[in-house]
Design a binder for these strands. Structure first.
Lengths: 332, 332
DNA sequence: GATTTTATGGCCACTATTTACGAAGTTTCA
DNA sequence: TGAAACTTCGTAAATAGTGGCCATAAAATC
């Protein structure tokens, strides 16, 4: 591989000039620029990104930590982040935290040791305090899909409360009044906000919140199954169910069908997130759209803006959910 | 950030000794090792991976190119690769090719410019010849889910022919004889092999291959819909359908249901790949398991073995598919 | 007490690039 | 015409390590 030395020799200029031509930040006369460019083309020169990083103290890489690499939610998110950063010539180093505190911290340490210029984190197990401490270090961090008050302009998150509200409101407006809610784990702020939205909708329509119609799930299919089983036992008048994510909605649908319910006539179900296969389910799932792809884009823009000083990027920290009507919700 | 100089000063030893402690290749007495270790801990020293890379000409990073970051198939694959490499302290740089030749080449160039020690590629649009040329360059490449004869020990692939065979055989053994086949795009080797397996199964059971019962799909839901529409028009006696992937099977299920078929009584459908939401569909999808997670693991091992000389890794280049029986296939 | 082995220091070349500083050269304008 | 101002470019230091070689000192063995 050709080095900058060979280019400078062939072009008859100094190393510094070659560097200037590459980095376009200082002025070089058109004549010498062309000489250098020709020499580069002739040698097939490609700058050594490692040496660039060492000299400039910039690695041009952004570390991403997600809970899992598989799963529809993270796929969309990474897709959004990567496409934006790739276009800016930055690269993405991805690792996983598996929603466990120790592994999340370990993953962050790993990324820091790789000299990332910034980190974009989707962490669930680690505390807000940890994140606040981390944010004081020299590597900037940005937080996806989680709202931390002290770091609010480094967070890209969904208005989860509004999502929970919209879900339940959608059911109420179809005439339902016995509405179950299968939430996510309560240690997650997202879960709490979605539940809060549910309660607000009930209140707005003068429906009482009934403990027996609430179940704390696990955001997985199993949580939907266990949840619906419990809720039906608690109240056999149930006509509608809001789930705090689509996986649990899918589990609930499966359980309902296996227990003789016609969907959506016998039971209306609404999900949350609008993951890619929500439309593959039968009946296709009415759900709350979580614009995670756009949020990934935005996190990348935020990083580009604050770390690489890219101009003219409008940042939106909080995204609003919308209702996606399909066929899993019917009228009473 | 502390440098190796500060560590050597604090510990009262030379640079060489600090290096020796870190790299564990030459002997250091327990006493000095401890002194150095303490100094490192005290300073919070973390070797600068960029400088290490420059000096050692190793970036300790593996470039991964996949078609998409979202989608169940790639999620599983990346998961497999990442977990293995992460455990070995290597990091993964991921980018996308979107199944388009230009973007795939662009992605490969991008990864090469980042000085990856090796590339693991899932490419679909690029030609075998291109890959053979690429393999002659200094950066080793490994190929996922694609078989290239000249590079066979750098490929980790599925026995697709066997998968196609098993799918059709499963249907035949349930008594079906009018069996449609919705294949993938014929420019992809995988698609051709799966089709070939289908033909072998037909032949083995003395069933003719009928052009009218074959449709070239696009590996997406739309292909399943268009495919089933065409096949039904060609032959209204159709009782079973094999699809070359699960997305198309899902599309076909949707079309069938919307056109009054009971599943699986009216039409049996078998998929291919066993993607994560195959079990969320209704009825749950009988399919051919494609062990893509394990294949990802294996690709990572192959890279570790050939690039970093990790010992005692058994490499398996070709994986065998298995039948996963669920509820979308019925008996005649 | 001599010889061998082990541990460590010191030094330097090497990696490919960025960037501060300053030296030329060119233009502008009184 | 000469000084000031600006443009353009080269020199050399800095970046943070690796790794090889040789010298030397300390410990172990004979």
């Amino acid at each position: 591989m050709a080095t900058i030395y060979e280019v400078s020799k062939l072009a008859g200029v100094s190393l510094a000039t070659v560097s200037r031509v590459m980095n376009k930040n200082t002025r070089v006369s058109e004549k010498t620029r062309k000489k250098v460019q020709d020499a580069m083309d002739q040698l097939g020169y490609r700058p050594n990104s490692i040496a660039q990083s060492l000299a400039s103290n910039r690695s041009n890489s952004i570390g991403i930590l997600v809970s899992e690499l598989h799963g529809p939610f993270f796929g969309q998110m990474m897709s959004g982040i990567e496409s934006e950063l790739r276009a800016a010539g930055k690269h993405v180093i991805i690792t996983t935290g598996h929603s466990e505190q120790e592994k999340e911290i370990d993953g962050i340490e790993f990324l820091l040791s790789r000299n990332c210029d910034a980190l974009i984190l989707h962490v669930e197990a680690v505390s807000d305090e940890y994140l606040i401490e981390l944010s004081k270090k020299s590597t900037p961090i940005f937080i996806m899909s989680r709202y931390v008050e002290n770091l609010k302009d480094r967070c890209i998150s969904l208005n989860n409360e509004m999502g929970g509200y919209l879900a339940t409101k959608t059911l109420i407006e179809k005439g339902h009044s016995a509405i179950g809610f299968i939430g996510g784990p309560e240690f997650k702020a997202d879960s709490r906000s979605r539940l809060q939205g549910h309660r607000r909708a009930l209140k707005e329509f003068n429906l009482p919140f009934d403990d027996k119609l609430y179940f704390e799930g696990d955001f997985k299919e199993t949580g939907g199954i266990a949840g619906l089983r419990t809720l039906i036992k608690n109240n056999d008048q149930l006509t509608a169910l809001a789930c705090a994510n689509d996986e649990m909605a899918s589990g609930a649908m499966k359980y309902a069908r296996e227990h003789g319910y016609n969907l959506p006539e016998g039971l209306s179900i609404i999900g949350f997130d609008n993951i890619i296969y929500a439309s593959y389910l039968y009946p296709t799932l009415t759900t709350i759209h979580n614009p995670i792809y756009e949020m990934g884009h935005m996190a990348a823009k935020l990083a580009l803006k604050s770390v690489y000083n890219v101009k003219n990027l409008k940042i939106q920290n909080i995204f609003e959910p919308t209702v996606i009507e399909r066929n899993s919700v019917g009228s009473v």
